[in-house]
Amino acid sequence: MSPHPQEALSTPRAAGLAGILFGLLLGTAIVLVRLAVPEHPASAGAWLTDSSRRSAVQAALDLVPFAGISFLWFLAAVRDRMGEREDRFFATVFIGSGLVFVAVLLCAAAAAGGMLATAGGANQQLWGFGHSFAYTLLTEYSMRMAAVFAFCTSTIARRLRVLPRSLVWFGWLVGLALIGGAGNVSWLELAFPVWALVVGGYVLGAGSGRTASG
């Protein structure tokens, strides 16, 4: 028995909304952290004594769990959209990289939260360790998992022809850039939420178009 029209249209709209929400939440969190926290541990004093910067970091950390939830929704909705046509090899890497990305992202936020809570009385060495640990998790490990996710998603979308060629190439470019430059190029981690935002907007627009034509 074929699915009802409303059931068939719910998945792409859900995927689009989740992608947009994830892109906005994670992008905002990254911008807040980048503006408030210096890259080098030796420059810690400037923001540890500034209540507005500390509040900005706390706000960013509060957004991360909701970004993770939105990403899981995005992942599940995109996989459901693939249906039985998905390639098992790429689907396994797609799911695994997505789950590891969320796990590492939450670990980075937890490390940063613990560092923020104890920074007032911490010595310079302890601050340096916490700073490097949280930054490495966010800018290197989580972003490389994000790169694999973007690359696999774009490859699957190309095979199933569910995204235009321009977005497929955009996803591959984002994946390659994050694989090679994550942790080395400042602000490069914003490429992933921007990609999710663009893909989510396209999927949402496509779903709305199908609803109107139906």
Rank of each mutant, 00 (worst) to 15 (best):
P3N: 06
P3M: 03
P3H: 00
H4Y: 00
T11F: 03
P12H: 08
R13H: 08
R13W: 00
R13M: 06
A14H: 00
A15C: 07
G16Q: 07
L17A: 14
G19V: 04
I20V: 11
I20T: 06
L21Q: 00
G23A: 14
L25A: 12
G27N: 06
I30Y: 13
V31C: 10
V31S: 08
V31W: 02
R34A: 07
A36Y: 03
P38L: 02
H40S: 13
S43I: 02
A44M: 00
A46M: 08
W47A: 05
W47H: 07
T49P: 09
S51W: 11
R53V: 02
R53G: 00
R54Q: 15
R54N: 11
S55A: 14
S55C: 00
Q58W: 07
A59S: 02
A59W: 01
A60P: 00
V64S: 03
F66S: 03
F66G: 03
F66E: 03
I69L: 13
I69S: 12
S70H: 12
F71Q: 05
L72P: 04
W73G: 09
F74E: 00
L75N: 06
L75Y: 08
A76M: 02
A77I: 11
A77E: 03
R81Y: 10
R81Q: 05
M82H: 11
G83Y: 06
G83P: 12
R85F: 07
E86D: 12
D87Q: 09
R88K: 13
F90W: 14
A91T: 08
A91Y: 03
F94D: 13
G96D: 05
V100S: 08
V100Q: 02
C107N: 07
A109C: 11
A109S: 07
A110L: 07
A111S: 11
L116H: 06
A119I: 07
A119V: 15
A119Q: 06
N123A: 15
Q124R: 11
Q124M: 09
Q125F: 11
G128F: 01
F129E: 14
S132K: 02
A134I: 07
L138Q: 13
Y141Q: 13
M143A: 01
R144H: 08
A146W: 05
A146C: 01
A147D: 01
A147H: 01
V148N: 07
F149H: 04
C152V: 09
T153P: 00
T153I: 06
S154T: 15
S154L: 04
T155Q: 03
I156Q: 13
I156L: 15
A157C: 15
L160F: 12
R161T: 10
L163S: 03
L163Y: 12
P164F: 10
S166D: 09
S166K: 13
L167K: 10
V168D: 15
W169C: 07
W169E: 14
F170P: 01
F170E: 02
L173A: 15
L176V: 12
L176W: 08
L176T: 07
A177V: 15
I179L: 15
G180H: 05
G180P: 03
G181L: 15
V185Y: 10
L188I: 14
L188D: 12
F192L: 10
F192D: 04
V194K: 08
A196R: 04
G200V: 09
G201H: 05
V203A: 02
L204H: 13
L204G: 10
L204N: 09
G205V: 15
A206P: 10
G207A: 15
G207C: 14
S208N: 13
T211R: 10
T211I: 14
S213D: 03
S213Q: 11
G214D: 11
